[in-house]
């Protein structure tokens, strides 16, 4: 049983490092995710983890954050955003970038890379139209472990069966022992970088299309507003933002407005007032 003082310590640490809000009714998540970590480190349990972190064990604090922020991901999740990308957003961005023939796409909190690779596959399918274009996909996540998996592009049989059409599996993956590895050409299309969304994002550069789906749901309102504000600074006036189906900007940020008739897609609101800037806490 998790002691209240340990819960408070962990909740505060996670909020500061990742923005993740853990409420007492979600204490079971701490138990289920941190118990294996304790075992792997030969510690007796969460109590020992907290004791070591109180002694400023940075590596352990990092592992705890990673264990708690790892979220599931699958190929072509929700399908519709990818249809919208192919049929509406990409053509609009291409028309707007015809002069420089360059597009940058960001998969924020990309976990093990399925969203970024889904986009890479879609772009590969459009390669005739994109001939002569430079398209860059950047995937970022707070978890080094997830990024290593993303870079390897190696997925279990279970993972490749969730959302990935079989024709895409045959075309873009190779079987490697009991796993499936995504084609080297597609891996080369995506650049994975460790980045905390609460940190200064400007080092990532500007993006024409941002996917930040099912991320804000884990944050409290001020953190959501701050992250949206920081994302907006990376977007030119005609860029697009994707949020998850259960997420919205309404009542949180005036920097974005929903794209008419396209659920889940947001454009910058030219008239929207900037949210008062404030520091988002995160370790460097």
């Amino acid at each position: 049983m998790l002691r209240p003082e340990d819960f408070d310590f962990l909740a505060k640490l996670l909020k500061e490092r990742s923005g993740l809000v853990i409420t007492p009714d979600k204490a079971y998540l701490l138990e289920s995710r941190l118990t294996p970590l304790a075992r792997a480190r030969n510690l007796k349990g969460i109590e020992d983890i907290v004791a070591k972190m109180r002694g400023h064990d940075e590596a352990l604090a990092r592992d705890v954050t990673e264990a708690m922020t790892t979220n599931e991901s699958f190929f072509f999740r929700d399908t519709k955003p990818f249809d919208q990308f192919k049929d509406i957003v990409l053509p609009q961005v291409m028309a707007a970038r015809m002069a420089k023939k360059s597009i940058r796409i960001w998969s924020a909190a990309c976990s093990s890379g399925q969203e970024a690779y889904s986009l890479a596959m879609l772009l590969k399918e459009q390669s005739a139209k994109l001939n002569g274009w430079h398209v860059e996909i950047v995937g970022t996540d707070i978890s080094v472990e997830m990024l290593d998996k993303a870079k390897a592009g190696l997925y279990s049989q279970f993972e490749v069966q969730r959302g990935l059409p079989i024709q895409m599996l045959v075309k873009y993956f190779k079987k490697k022992d009991e796993s499936w590895q995504i084609d080297a050409g597609l891996r080369a299309m995506v650049q994975f970088r460790e980045w905390n969304l609460l940190k200064d994002l400007r080092g990532l550069g500007q993006f024409d299309i941002v996917f930040c789906r099912n991320v804000l749901i884990y944050f409290d309102q001020p953190t959501k507003a701050g992250v949206l504000e920081n994302i907006s600074k990376l977007m030119p006036a005609d860029a697009f933002l994707y949020l998850g189906g259960a997420e919205t900007v309404l009542g949180i940020s005036e920097r974005f407005k929903p794209m008419a008739g396209q659920r889940g897609i947001y454009c910058l609101n030219k008239d929207g007032a900037a949210t008062p800037s404030f520091p988002l806490k995160a370790p460097n």
Binding site: Q157, Q161, R162, I166, L169, V170, K174, K175
Partner: peptide, 27 residues
Amino acid sequence: ENDIDHIQEAITAGANEYIMKPFDSEI
């Protein structure tokens, strides 16, 4: 049967999708 050759053969024969066992309700 979970190798590329079998999957390719099934698609060529007119299969629309392909599940590799074991499967669950989610898949």
